[in-house]
Design a protein around this nucleic acid. Structure first.
Lengths: 97, 97
DNA sequence: TAGTTAATTGGTTAATTTGTCAACAAGCAA
DNA sequence: TTGCTTGTTGACAAATTAACCAATTAACTA
């Protein structure tokens, strides 16, 4: 596992780690319906707004979502809906247990 | 995010977290070529055998791999090659940055 | 300008994850 | 049985992640 390779795998794992939290997966699913404001996400998740904001920040840094400020609101949306296909695959793994 | 839902998302995140480490992604790629012994994986990864063994244990608990002891060796293989499709999707996210 | 709403950031604490070394268990062979 | 090889487990320290509250910033409105 040489250095060039580890760089590649580190980058991948950053993205995957950003997906690896129940709240963040929930947010991915929620955003599959279209863009939402941070406030709408906070309400849907039901956690402290600072907690949710930090989750969104992790997701944005990983490139899972992008955001845009319009007026007082910040709108979030998925950068790549293809990630949702992963969930289908996960279900087939879940069923094996 | 009610209780029934969180159970679903917790299970998903367990699987994803098991993928969210550079070494473990590397192992997934390595196993895409077919089953390998723990020793072969240790050599390829280049880390302590106990470290690799624990990574394999995390992956197995999540259902990403399965193993079988034959003689002195323990052979590991992917339970579901479909996970590899995820990596294609990740590349498209990586390219956006 | 002062006030209000929406969202992010900083600081702190608790929990989880990772890596390493040493000890152990299982299977084989002399 | 004794010893060798392969792999897993336990204990511990270091690093990372997560949640919460308080303070702050940004954009609008009266």
């Amino acid at each position: 596992m040489n250095n060039e390779i580890t760089k590649k795998y580190r980058k991948r794992s950053e993205i995957i780690k950003a997906l690896g939290h129940p709240t963040r997966i929930f947010i991915m699913d929620f955003l599959a319906n279209g863009e939402k404001t941070a406030g709408e996400i906070v309400e849907k998740v039901g956690a402290d707004k600072s907690t949710v904001s930090k989750h969104l920040s992790v997701m944005k840094n990983a490139g899972l979502v992008e955001n845009e400020k319009r007026g007082l609101n910040v709108f979030y949306k998925l950068t790549c809906a293809c990630i949702l296909n992963l969930f289908t695959c996960l279900e087939s793994i879940e069923k094996r247990d």
